[in-house]
Nucleic acid binder design. Sequence first.
DNA 1: GAGTTTGAAACT
DNA 2: CAGTTTCAAACTC
Length: 751
Amino acid sequence: MQDSPVFNFINNLSPIPPPKPSDRAHNVQLFKSSDLAPVSSIFASPHVNLAKEPKILIRDESVQLPQELHSPSSVRTRATSSITFRMIRCKDIVSENCNTTTCRLNEASIDSSDHTSSSENQLPQSIQNGAGSVEGDRDQCADGKTNISQECTDLEGMNLDESVPDKMDQSHSVVDLHENQLSEQNKDEPAAYNGDHMITNQPSSNMLKLGLPFGTETQSLNDTQKADNSYSGKPLLNAESSGYYIQNSGHEPHLYWTCAVEGAAVACTPQALPGALQSQLMPCNKLNEPKDYMPAEQNASSQHLRGTRRRSLFNEKAGAGNKVVDKASVRHSVNSTTPKCKTISGDINSKPLRTPPCALPGIGLHLNALAAIPKEKIVSRDIQSTISESSNLPCPAGSSPPPSEQNVINDDFAQTTDIVSAEPSSQGSPKKKRHKFDNGDGTSCKRCSCKKSKCLKLYCECFAAGVYCSEPCTCQGCLNNESNMDTVLSTRQQIESRNPLAFAPKVIHTSEPGLELGDFNNKTPASARHKRGCNCKKSSCLKKYCECFQGGVGCSISCRCESCKNAFGRREGVAPSSIEEPKHASEENNACVKEEKCEIDKQLVIYQATDLAPAENLLSTPLMMECRPLASLPPPSSKKPRSSMKLTGNPSRLANSQAPLKTDILLAQFGNYTEMFLGDSTSDSLKGNSSPQTSVKVVSPNKKRVSPPRMGTGLSPICKSGRKLILKSIPSFPSLGGDLNNEDPKSSPAP
DNA sequence: GAGTTTGAAACT
DNA sequence: CAGTTTCAAACTC
């Protein structure tokens, strides 16, 4: 009788949970014997929370299905995935009402559709544990969310094993253990996500552990990740996800589900993110609030979106590899589409970030820096717009980077770097043999050809730029790849420890669109900064050997070059000599004869005519800004390659819609560099200044900036003045915190 | 494509 | 910190 489908059916339909909950064995068998589990599951949901169930069912399936797809067929994998979701579910239930066991049963049955055996097993447990746990759950609603989830998880884990009966008996013990551990775990959890916004794997792993059955924890987790990796949705289950679920599931029961569904559907809205962060930050207590429990469609959807968004962010990194990109994420991750080079810091999933994302050496944002910059940061940045909780962003000071963002930034940098050479070449200069790879979507590959450095030294452009070597590279013995991420990161750190500016951009410039046109707003434009002066001797700073020239910036006082003829601005020493200008110009012109620059110069000239006043131009010039005497600057007519170059060379870059984001990021980080270079006080002033003098900063159409003087370099009065200008220019950059934008008149004078 | 030149990075 | 060596890009042929 009981076995009959009808019987089951009836049981499921009855509004009241089956009277047999107590009889686990019975139930178990019941379900086991029949294949109807799916059916029961379907009908079962109605029993419990009518309101919720529909959602649950849908979500559940949607969620699991993807998982299934991803995970080949290993039972274990499946189990893992199912565990994750179930955990969520349990939470949802609890969070919403801290209620019923029935719900669990139903849900379990639902799962059964996919995993019949497991679901069968679950039901009994749910019932059993549910009774006991539920009570506790209610009490714990506020605080014990974790516990609940754990229980659920445990149950789930139980499901994994086909030999349910025994385990079921153990289930309690297991649960108890977990609960005991909860106190500790709970403590850990918050820390985990607080630090990195849940991006790091470790935290997540911990979280997962809570739910996972003993012994299988690690394995399961690994499997899960692997499975995740296999598909685009990877982030979903990854550590991030785990953390995610735990937190959010509590407050926003539906959020995840929806997210999962949406993720599959690829529907995300930008707004979601902010919410996600908030949710993360939200204290458990919040769950108590009705609104949290309320699964209002809108809320749920919005929340879902949030969750999705977040996820996408995480994905970004993976995005490169995975090629699956959330729409939401698209905006942020330019690269996601086809990066040939992966950013170094990128693999969040695979590697736990030991150091805070920000920590990546790359403070500088340079390519490297970017690479190093954690996605989170980017996300945060994004979020900031909506939420001004920038403060929450974790950027302790660590150094390790996540990648997706980096790519974006990298592109800019790469572009910038290449501007000089590339653009001219574009015009037809055959000189450039090596065309750095730029796929246009922001990802740039350096195409290194290292042989002895293993691509782990600054010699390697890829490494220096913070990207992994990839196809275009012809390097030998390359260790700059994801599989050697640890090595790469450690090496980076090592190098940074030796030279904090090692990964700083040689030349930083923003690619903000509008600035060049004269839109000086607060956004600071200029931003080409020469990290450190060149030391050219034979190239006269007229060839790409010269970093300054290569970066499209003039040489500055910090350069030690000999016979500098940098077309972008010579280093004439501190002393300005108006007299020299003409001379310089002529010299530069001469240089042009041989160099590609000529083309550039021409372009520059054109811009100058329309663009900036000479004085502005001077200021705008990169290195010059710092210490270079105005007089020394080449006459406008001579050329102002920097600005013009950029503009002429590749307008598209400037126009890049993503530019703002990149710029922001850069700027934000740039502040760090600034501090390094100028000192905190200086940076402060910079931050504060957006001011009136900004005109100066706006400066170069190119936006290229002067390189900051070396730390140790003494500044002459002139230099100081130069500093001022620089500072101001910097401030204009939006900072992550958004504070920078505020103008602060104070900044003006340097001590 | 091979060889040379160059200057940064790395090393001492 | 300065000098030397190593390295890979830039450049030339």
